[in-house]
């Protein structure tokens, strides 16, 4: 199948799903109280985006996501590089890291609430906590992916430590690092949402859980569309750079 055909098929499927979403509830084939027609949801989304309290919630959520990300990525990266570069630290901490990684992080959420209260810090701390593990494991994998031969070659040509880092490690790890960034953002965003939905006074996650509890389905679906769009856009932006940086990978 040609590239164009595949794209056409995808668009056709998308159109089919959207049409079904509009038409089935509209003609009572599906209960519109449970699934409001797409048109209603979109007009609700338009209305919500004009409301000051929604702007405030978006601002709070965005701030939580960004701050948690800015804490988790450097922290996880440094720890990941340490356990990959130091044999001793690797031997000691790697098994523990994998044990902890396997535990669902959401069970720790009540402890974060006890420690931080229902605050901005609680959302950030919990999201950063869940994300740091992913970043650590990805960073360690990225460091280990750099072939020893590449380093040996650079050394044989008299490269300094800084040159080995910038000219060998960074380009060699770049595709994996971007992938790590993308996946950690997924975890980070999820962390903030769970923390907001579980216990919060503001934020988009809080609004979504409120709409769900009050059976406000158009609002709920509008929120889902909004968050999905933001998440997909971020993911695709990073993937675009990933593809450009990894043309040499086959």
């Amino acid at each position: 199948m040609s590239r164009a055909q595949i794209i056409m098929t995808r668009l056709a499927l998308l159109a089919l799903v959207l049409a079904a979403w509009e038409l089935l509830p509209r003609h009572q084939v599906v209960n519109p109280l449970l699934l409001p027609p797409l048109g209603d949801v979109l007009s609700m989304l338009g209305k919500l985006l004009l409301q000051a309290r929604v702007h405030e919630a978006i601002g709070v959520t965005a701030a939580e996501v960004v701050v948690a990300f800015l804490i988790a990525v450097p922290l996880g990266a440094v720890l990941g590089v340490l356990i990959a570069e130091s044999d001793y630290l690797g031997e000691v901490f790697k098994p523990m890291l994998f044990y902890v990684f396997s535990i669902p992080k959401s069970i720790f959420l009540p402890m974060f609430i006890l420690a931080f209260g229902i605050t901005f810090a609680q959302k950030v701390a919990y999201a950063a906590f869940t994300t740091t593990f992913v970043v650590m494991i990805s960073a360690a994998t990225a460091v280990e992916s750099v072939k020893q031969d590449y380093i040996l070659v650079a050394r044989s040509y008299g490269a300094t430590r800084a040159q080995i880092l910038m000219r060998v490690y960074v380009p060699s790890m770049m595709p994996l690092l971007l992938e790590a960034l993308r996946i950690s953002m997924i975890f980070n965003f999820t962390g903030v949402m769970i923390a907001e939905m579980y216990a919060s006074r503001t934020g988009i996650g809080h609004m979504i859980s409120g709409w769900g509890e009050n059976f406000q389905m158009p609002e709920l679906f509008a929120g889902v569309i909004l968050l999905s769009a933001v998440a997909v856009l971020f993911n695709e932006a990073v993937r675009f750079f990933e593809a450009r940086c990894s043309a040499w990978r086959t």
């Binding site: 031969d149 590449y150 070659v153 060998v168 380009p171 040499w248």
Partner: peptide, 10 residues
């Protein structure tokens, strides 16, 4: 070196 050990990104 044994394997050509070229940098694949260059």
């Amino acid at each position: 070196f044994q394997e050509a050990s070229l940098y694949p990104w260059l």
